[in-house]
Structures are given as C-alpha cells and as structure tokens.
Nucleic acid binder design. Structure first.
Lengths: 310, 310
DNA sequence: ATAAGCTTGACAAATGCTGTACAACGAACG
DNA sequence: CGTTCGTTGTACAGCATTTGTCAAGCTTAT
C-alpha cells in the first residue's frame, strides 16, 4: 500500500529521535562523530534526517548499554549481532543492582528479623521513591513470591509469613486511603469471595485501579456472595472486582460466583482475576482478568463516560 | 441534511480556524504564504474561507509538530502520508500528555480555584504514582516556576501564591516524616539562613536527601546562625545544608555564613545551595551546590563510612 | 466607525550544526 | 594508595536556518 515508506527512508528530524530513544541531541551527535554509530542523511539546510532503521539501531544500543555494556563495545556491531546480544541480555538479568532490588533485599532482611514495623517503613520508603507502578512490579510482587519460596523451603516460620503479609496489607490499605480521589470518579468495589482468605492480590489490583483514578471500596477478604451484593446495592459501583489466589475450579466457589452474578445489577460488570482465576471454568457474565496489564486495559474499557463536576 | 456540506466546501473564516487549531492568524497566513500548507478559497472581499479538509489537515500538522517534527518537513506531505506519520508518532513514546503533565495541570487548576486541600491531595497522588524523583522534577519544580510566572503576570493574587506555597510545604514535610529512616543513617541538618524566608528549595533538597537514605532534621526557614549552630551541637549531623533563593551577595548574609562556619565543628561540612547561591562570593569552608544532581553527588561524597546496624 | 482581515517586510527567538572543552567515573598503573 | 589515562556525557561559543511575531498601511465588514 505504500509508495515510499521504506524503513531505510530518511525522514525523522533529530527531535523525534530524542523523544523516541531518550538520548539527548548532544549524545546523538557525539555518538555519530566519535563512533559513527549511525549515519543519518541530511536535508536542505544540513539538518540530520534519520531513518526507521537508524532509530531501531539506536534503541537497541540504548538497551544494550542499560544492560551494563560499554558504548564502545557495541556501537561497531552489525545490526543482527546487536539484536542477538540485546535479546540475550534481556533473558539474563545482566542489570546492576537497581534501587528496587535494594529495597527488596532490605525488606527481606526485615522479614527474616521478624520486625514488621521496619518492613512497613521500608516498603513505605520504596513506594515514595519509586512510585506505585514500579513498586508493585519490582518490589512487592517479587517479595511476595520470594516469601512463598522461602517459606516452602522451611527457612521461615508461619509467624514470619503472617507478620510480613499483615505489614504488606497495612501498607496497601494506607495507599488506598491516600489515593482516594474527589467526587465524580468512577467507582470500583473490590473483594475476595468466600473461601479465599488471601487479600493481597485483590489489594494490589485495588491500588492499581486507584492510581488510574478510580474510587475504590475495599470490602475485605473471604466474603459471601450475598454480602458483596448487599454492599453493591449501597455503593452503586461501576465495576465489581474479585481476586482468587488458590485455584479452586471445584468446590463452593463456582456456585458463589454464580450467585453473586445473579444478585448484582445486570449492567454492572463483574471481573475475576488473580493467580487462581485461570483455572476457573469460563462463566457467563464474568470477565476474566489475565494479569495486571490486562486489568488496566479492562479498567479503561469499562470506565463510564466522563462526567466532570467542573 | 444540506445538499452541499462536502468536507471540501469552503465556509470557515479564519477566526474559527484559529480556535479549532490553536494557531494564531499570523501563523496561518505565514504557513500559507511560505509553504502553501493550505489553499483556502476567498470570499467576496478577499477574506479566506477554509474547508473542513483544510482544518483537518492543519490539525494533523499541529500534532506532527508537537511530536518534534519541523514545519518544513511535514507541510509538503500528502494527506494520507501525514495521517500515517501522526499515527505512528502517537504509537511510539511521543505521547502528547504524560501523567506528570496531567498532575501539573490539575494542580494548577486547584491553585487557580484557591483550594489548597485539593492541591495537596493532587500532589499526594502525584508523588505516590510517579515516585519522588520524577515528582520533584516534572511536577513540583515546574509548578513552582509556573506559579512564579503567573503571579508576576498578575493573574494570581498573593493569597493564591501563599496558599499554594503552604500546601507544597506541608506535602514536603509529610514526605520528610514518612521517609524517616531507622538508626545508623547519616544525618543531615537542613535550614535556611536568617533573611531567607523561602523554605521550598531547602525542603526539596531535604526530601531528595531523605530518598538517598539520610536522616534529615529540618529546622525551618529564616534562622540566625547561632540557632543553627546550637541545633548542630545537639543533633551532631554529618552535614549541614543551607539554601537561599534570593541572591544576596551583600548585606548580612555573608556575615551570617561566616559566623555559622566558625561556630560549627571544623570537620562538619557546610553546604550552600539554591537559586541565589551562585551569586554568593566563594567563601573558605563553604561548599557551593550547583543544582540537584550536584547535590546528590555531594551527598554521596560526604556520606560517612558505612555503619549498618546489621 | 470600530473591529477584523489582508499584504509585505522585517525582526528575533528557537533550534540545529560544528568544534572545542570540561567534568565525572572507572580502570590501569606506578 | 594516589596518579594517570581512556571513556563518555554535557556545556559553550559562533554561525546558519527555521519559524513565530510584529508593524505599517490598506481594505472589508458589522
């Protein structure tokens, strides 16, 4: 369909390249002059014009450098080899120690020492330094997984695990309160169905939604369908979200969900996510959430039309 | 409904186009004269009449330029190719409005409405979403600059400015408290010297240090040298930091600084930063801080040798 | 008649380019 | 252990191009 949009066609001014690669104009010119990293064409008034290929190559270079390699060691590589290198580095964790990892290590130390107050303070510092999205992805979720591992290996007692979970839940509750938006925000009702006593996953989803501007009502964990439905009648949410950690395709859970679906207003979407959700049989009227990115997409999709109260 | 409402029908006067595209009449005429970006028909007297197609094309041009492209490089493109380019830029990271900018706009709105509580809540959400470093660099500092501009332009009253400043100071104080690390952390004493009543800059530096793991004691603004020295004798900091916003190379300030330097323990470094610091004469025993990155470097340099309490 | 629009010409701020220099950092080295 | 050197990002000055804005004088519209 295209006349002349070949990837080697020069058409991007330097400004666009800085936006897309994150490199400053100075660096772009320096790399060109010193290493000949790219060879952009020139326009009328001697302005640089980069091709799509140029941009791709620069992006790869940036990734390779972020993985800890030196500039000089990668600028000379031919494209294919560069791509291979970056792919490899992506698989391995070649990265140095990021702040997030430092917080993670510090938090694990606090868990081992059974000092929940210190753990909570550490998590709090981590949130404030990194921002919620990065905190959730690079500190909290890895920490939960790690605690699970270490606990199964017998290196931690039940007390440790419970104390850590409680501290995390306190922290997430705090975030939820701090994030409470003003009126006019879309409303989300979040809970965990009867039989599911682990609320961490649901809380993480709740906080993620709050960052996106939702007003979240957190009901708690292990709630019977009727309780949730009653709360929904009072709260009138635009969306109801549930999360289950333990896969329970059988048992009382499917029944609970069906009851809840029936008790809810028909036009209120009901979403189900969490690690155990994938094992659930598909059910009419219940939307499955695969993972956190998918959750954000669904939130955006089901957001009611704007009604700004000025 | 009508017979002749084709999108290429010329019917909009230049005023309408100005409002719909955000371009000034001068720019519209200049683009036409210099590049022939559009070719509006003329009415009875020689007034321009733009078609819907013209407006759509101009809107696309604006978007392309916002994405970093030069005017000259896009005005000549045929419509389809222009559309493709804009779509492509939108997909890539060249977003029109980042979350940080959204928070900034929201906060400025709260300032205009003189609702400090709303401003504080907005700032709080911004910190939690973005993390402190990005928040300071992309929301708070731009906001302070913007408030200064708008205030000088007379669009805001003193009340607005004071309310906004107070809200920002409350927020930074809150951050300082939340970030307070445990024992064993390096200690920083932060204040503003006598005659300098603006504490925002110092607070920003204080919070930045707290993120780096320092225990910060914030004394407040407008403090005589003797007070600061007395506090230092009690607090025993590893570092004393001052910040001045207003350049005052002459006056009482140099004297104050010299007094403080003499009253402090000789091995306690004394750092001076802020917008007004560059105008100060270099002084023996006082380290000048150029900007925030430099501040972080100096913090790392003067950090006492590690003594982790396990 | 006052405001808005037109044309032409000119100016100045922004942006990009080149070349040089400097500063921070880590590694090699005496 | 301090010094030196190579690497790499950033800053600055001088110049060219691009591009937004303004002024002056005139015409048209409400």
């Amino acid at each position: 369909m295209t006349t002349n949009s070949s990837p080697s066609e020069p058409r991007h001014p330097i400004r666009v390249v800085t936006e897309r690669t994150g490199l400053s104009p100075d660096v772009l010119r320096a790399w060109e002059r010193r290493y000949g990293a790219v060879n952009p064409a020139r326009g009328e008034g001697r302005h640089r014009l980069y091709s799509d290929d140029d941009i791709r190559r620069l992006t790869l270079l940036v990734r390779a450098i972020q993985a800890g390699r030196s500039v000089a060691s990668v600028v000379a590589l031919p494209p294919e080899e560069l791509g291979r290198l970056v792919a490899e580095d992506g698989e391995q964790g070649v990265e140095a120690r990021t702040p997030a990892q430092a917080y993670l290590a510090q938090g694990m130390g606090a868990i081992h020492d059974l000092t929940p107050a210190l753990l909570e303070a550490t998590l709090r510092r981590a949130v404030l330094s990194l921002g919620i999205p990065e905190f959730l992805g690079k500190v909290l979720v890895p920490m939960i997984e790690k605690v699970g591992e270490v606990w199964h290996a017998g290196e931690l007692g039940v007390a440790h695990e419970h104390a850590a979970t409680a501290a995390m839940e306190r922290l997430l509750g705090w975030l939820l309160r701090e994030l409470a938006p003003g009126g006019g925000a879309p409303r989300l009702l979040m809970a965990t169905p009867a039989g599911e006593r682990h609320g961490l996953g649901a809380l993480i989803a709740a906080v993620s939604a709050a960052v996106d501007g939702w007003h979240v009502t957190w009901l708690g964990a292990d709630l019977p369908a009727l309780e949730i439905a009653a709360a929904a009648r009072r709260d009138l949410p635009d969306l109801v979200g549930l999360s289950i950690a333990i896969p329970k395709g059988s048992g009382a859970l499917p029944r609970e969900l069906a009851d809840l679906r029936k008790a809810l207003s028909i036009d209120t979407p009901l979403l189900l996510g969490g690690r155990g959700a994938s094992a659930m049989p598909a059910t009419e009227g219940i939307i499955m959430v695969r993972d956190l990115p998918h959750w954000h997409v669904l939130l955006r999709t089901h957001r009611p039309t704007h009604r700004w109260s000025s």
